[in-house]
């Protein structure tokens, strides 16, 4: 059971690094979509038998994280007519290297946290922390509003991976609530991105400075 699980998590980690190394916003959105869909498969691997609740979680996660949210972001992108991230705060190579360092330190750090017997050997905790860090790096170093939203989504993906440790423990209602909140959040953010574009004729968040102290 651990092997296919770890293969998926390694793939997720590779996608993180790819995300940090690209400026084309379309490929960022598509990569996040692939990552989300891969994560949707995780509950399947962690449960021995397929209950309707697990099946529903898998279907909802894949639909929302893999299709609906990326679709909304692609639409928002088409509406605001931008293709590339402007020069990021730190260079692409630097962010990839930072991401790699983050992954390594996540592996080292996760060793220090005590794990329950049934979870040792799986890469869940380091993958979660590394994905979280990658999301942070994207969020902080990119200037386009849409790229920042993608950073937030990657961060949420990291937390979702950690949630896999708790699939038996988390009640279904809460899981759905979390997904719903994420979905509505992205929906609201999409609207704001559009409004920013209309009001400032750009989605560059560096223009949002009139409220600086």
């Amino acid at each position: 059971m651990t092997n296919p699980l770890n293969s998926i998590l390694v793939a997720v980690l590779m996608l993180n690094l790819f995300l940090l190394g690209t400026t084309r916003i379309v490929s960022v959105i598509r990569t996040v979509a692939i990552q989300g869909a891969l994560l949707g498969l995780l509950p399947l691997l962690l449960h021995e038998h397929l209950s309707p609740v697990v099946a529903l979680t898998v279907v909802t996660t894949i639909t929302l994280k893999g299709l609906v949210i990326p679709g909304m972001m692609l639409r928002a992108l088409r509406d605001v007519k931008i293709k590339r991230e402007v020069e990021p705060l730190i260079g692409l190579q630097t962010s990839v290297i930072l991401g790699a360092l983050g992954t390594v330190s996540a592996l080292l750090f996760a060793d220090r946290l005590p794990l329950a017997a049934q979870h040792t050997g799986a890469l869940i905790v380091p993958a979660a922390i590394a994905t979280l860090l990658a999301g942070f790096i994207l969020l902080v170093t990119r200037f386009k509003a849409i790229s920042q939203v993608m950073g937030y989504l990657v961060l949420e993906n990291g937390i979702f991976i950690f949630g896999m440790l708790l699939v038996e423990a988390m009640p279904f209602v809460v899981e759905m609530g979390v997904l719903l909140d994420l979905f509505v959040g992205i929906f609201v953010i999409c609207i704001i991105v559009n409004q920013i574009n209309q009001a400032f004729s750009s989605t560059d968040t560096r223009r949002l400075i009139s409220l600086k102290e």
Binding site: Y152, I159, I192
Partner: peptide, 29 residues
């Protein structure tokens, strides 16, 4: 325009903060 800016900051900063809150809730579980 100023209120869009405020809303954007509010959504982004609070969403990230609340995401960490979710991770903390998971840790507690």
């Amino acid at each position: 325009p100023r209120s869009i800016e405020a809303t954007w900051k509010y959504m982004m900063v609070c969403s990230v903060g609340i995401a960490l809150g979710l991770l903390g809730t998971f840790f507690l579980a």
